[in-house]
Design a protein around this nucleic acid. Structure first.
Lengths: 258, 258
DNA sequence: CGCCCATTTGAAAAATTTCAAACGTAGTGG
DNA sequence: CCACTACGTTTGAAATTTTTCAAATGGGCG
């Protein structure tokens, strides 16, 4: 398990410069690693977490139940992400965390994290920054769900997921895992499952995406960005990572100028 | 100006225990204070802020422009709040900040804040916690806009504003300032202005609220909470502050059991 | 094969937006 | 003091988006 936290380092390096000694200290940790089956709760609303979860592989979402037959998904997380970083300073969970597929999670006691941030103030700043980026993404989701129509919302979600996947090295093409049911896509975009289905069909018909075997392929990145009104600034990646996807990509992306 | 940051202390004390020496250090600051006219930008999307803004009095909102004839408001802030705390670790603003009424803002250089957090690690933890609460509120807004219908959304917004106002001592009754146009309420709830107007009428007709001269009066707190599906847990106030509003309040709140 | 579950389709119902106009109030300038 | 303007609120009605309901289709798996 010595390398279990490798994805975390890739993630942290995408958002900040991580000093070598901090990298070493993190790699030296020997965290508990636990497998979670699809939909098996990782943390529940109301819990008082004592550990930080780091996604090693798989796909995780955060959600709240409303009504209680409605659900809203507020975030997706891939390898390297810490879906309950907030537990460090907020005692009780105001939402749940669950995986959508078989997922490996490293568990690090809060105390261990605080020891590290005491020893390495720069790590504290990086984690604080990560928490702020988490917040920035929620803001964009408020915009997405509040002011964009169905097609836009789904397109935007896909742009975000592909960009994040590329930033942490999960893929270097225009294709990435998307282990979600249409119901989950609907719950993330504030749509009904039926409507989400139709929005997906619209995106396919427009030749923007392909969706098969739980993988997303973007056929026309510029077109999808346009349809989504997507600007990655809110993800706050380091400048090098920022743009992420170029026009002259080695794929079949059509050039769609606006 | 020696007492300019008094509201900030009330706010911080509502979310955490603030050591006396930290209180003293904050009060000893002599921040620049600036007045902003309604709608006069405090920070713009794309800016690289060098200072933290603290609301001393007034009412501030954070927003993004989409399309560009649509606007989404993502947060409201009252006295004591720091609407761009995130600027401490995120270089460029991904959204704008503006007041809805004449507002007094204290400006504290980032450097000053970092000096203080270096000197008082407990302050760093409090500010980090505040940033996480900021994020928790965005999550609830995603839920609000994504999974609640018109009336619910507006009711929820009002519950949040009243609860926050009480927590920082802006009011101790069921009445608080609400210096917003219906267009702004619409932009915060993801509705059209016309529809927001109708939802307000519905809340009035149900005898839940009164709205006049830019003040909100809650006539039936339990009823409004019920209509809003409101649970203040996501605001993460200290336990003492938590409940905030009791059934047997010294006001004319009707008892609405569910 | 048969079952379970996710996806897809169609059609009606409901929520929400858009458009257009009326109304009210406050402020400005004559 | 009145006319005029600007802006926010209110109203009505049609257009549109989205949801709901119900059923059909399709794939994976024991």
């Amino acid at each position: 398990m010595a390398q279990a936290l490798r994805p975390l380092l890739r993630k942290l390096n995408a958002i900040a410069a991580v000093p070598a000694e901090v990298e070493a200290a993190l790699l030296a940790l020997n965290p508990t690693v636990k497998n979670f089956a699809p939909e098996e709760p990782i943390v529940r609303e109301g819990d008082r977490p004592t550990h930080i979860a780091v996604v090693i592989s798989g796909f995780v979402y955060r959600y709240k139940i409303v009504d209680p037959d409605k659900r809203q998904i507020m975030a997706f997380h891939v390898a390297g992400d810490m879906p309950d970083l907030q537990g460090l300073h907020l005692d009780v969970m105001d939402h749940g965390v669950a995986p959508s597929v078989e997922t490996r999670i490293a568990l690090i006691p809060h105390k261990t994290v605080f020891d590290l941030t005491d020893r390495y103030p720069s790590l504290a700043h990086i984690l604080w920054r990560e928490a702020l980026i988490d917040g920035a993404i929620f803001r964009e989701w408020v915009v997405n769900v509040g002011r964009r129509d169905g097609v836009n919302r789904v397109a935007h979600l896909f742009c975000e997921l592909l960009t994040k996947s590329r930033a942490v090295g999960l893929t270097d093409s225009l294709e990435c895992p998307l282990p979600l049911s249409q119901t989950q896509i609907a719950d993330a975009t504030g749509l009904s499952a039926v409507h989400a289905n139709r929005m997906l069909q619209a995106l396919r018909k427009q030749g923007l995406i392909r969706l098969e075997r739980k993988r997303l392929t973007v056929l026309d990145w510029e077109g999808l960005k346009e349809a989504a009104d997507f600007d990655p600034a809110y993800l706050h990646f380091k400048p090098e990572v920022f743009g992420g996807i170029e026009h002259d990509d080695a794929t079949d992306a059509r050039v769609a100028r606006h």
